[in-house]
């Protein structure tokens, strides 16, 4: 195992975060604060509790998940796409690094950034609403699992992307709508049928539900199902990444 190589790659990616602090950390935090101001304070104060949870506090897991998904994807996709774009990927391909080591470096850094961002958002939320976490270990597990899974997904997008437009296509046009419709700001139990049943086809529902369960002990679907769906997506992403390195798809000819 080339531990030093993994660490070099991981540190390099983490340093990019500090270099682009506004883009990487400050912008998502400001966006989240705005959500709290609009949905938590302005609108939320006129809304009833949901399942005994104040609306402002109810949306915290969903907001964290929204940032976690979009940031995991954008961090990891940009991390591998930029070396492809600039040509520096030659160095990764000619280094004594196995595919697993490369993934650990890139995806590990992207997931770390997302987790840190999630925790910053949680701390920020605490300034606005009273957030309680009933199952902190499950919350951490979901946080790590989701960050890893979607960083892997972002890594795949970064390898697949041929241009910056494709890079932002899936986070903006697929993941964000799915998160908004996945119960980030409401419980899908509030939806009439057939919309509730249709919502169950949205994989983000299971992420938000499981994450919210770790906070308040209640979710739209069972915690086991949420964990199962997340783990299945993680395995699917891993399988695609293994295929990419076996075939060299869009990495080398």
């Amino acid at each position: 195992m080339n531990i030093r190589g993994v660490w070099a790659l991981y540190s390099f990616e983490m340093q990019r975060t500090w270099r682009t602090l506004w883009q990487s950390v400050v912008t998502p935090v400001i966006t989240t604060v705005l959500y709290f101001v609009v949905f938590g304070s302005a609108i939320g104060s006129r809304m009833e509790d949901i399942g005994g949870v104040d609306y402002g506090a109810f949306i915290v897991p969903g907001l964290m998940m929204l940032s976690l998904l979009t940031q995991s994807i954008s961090n990891a996709s940009f991390g591998i796409y930029f070396p492809k774009f600039s040509g520096t990927v030659y160095e990764m391909l000619s280094a004594p690094m196995s595919p697993i080591e490369l993934v650990l470096g890139y995806v590990g850094a992207a997931a770390t950034k997302s987790i840190l961002l999630g925790l910053i958002i949680l701390a920020t939320a605490n300034l606005f609403v009273d957030v309680r976490i009933e199952y902190p270990l499950v919350m951490i597990l979901f946080l790590v699992l989701t960050a890893l899974t979607f960083s892997l997904f972002g890594f795949i997008i970064g390898i697949w992307a041929d241009g910056f437009e494709q890079l932002s296509f899936i986070p903006m046009l697929v993941v964000t709508p799915l998160t908004f419709l996945g119960g980030a700001f409401y419980s899908i139990n509030m939806l009439p049928d057939p919309w509730r049943s249709i919502s169950l086809f949205n994989p983000v529902v299971y992420l938000v539900s499981g994450f919210r369960w770790s906070f308040y002990g209640e979710g739209d679907v069972s915690i086991g199902l949420s964990l199962g769906i997340t783990a299945a997506f993680l395995i699917a992403c891993l399988a695609v990444v293994i295929w990419i390195f076996r075939t060299g798809y869009r990495l080398k000819e």
Partner: peptide
Amino acid sequence: WATVNFSRGLFGKA
């Protein structure tokens, strides 16, 4: 300095 040290690390050298 950073990029040259990065390359050294990538190749597993202390």
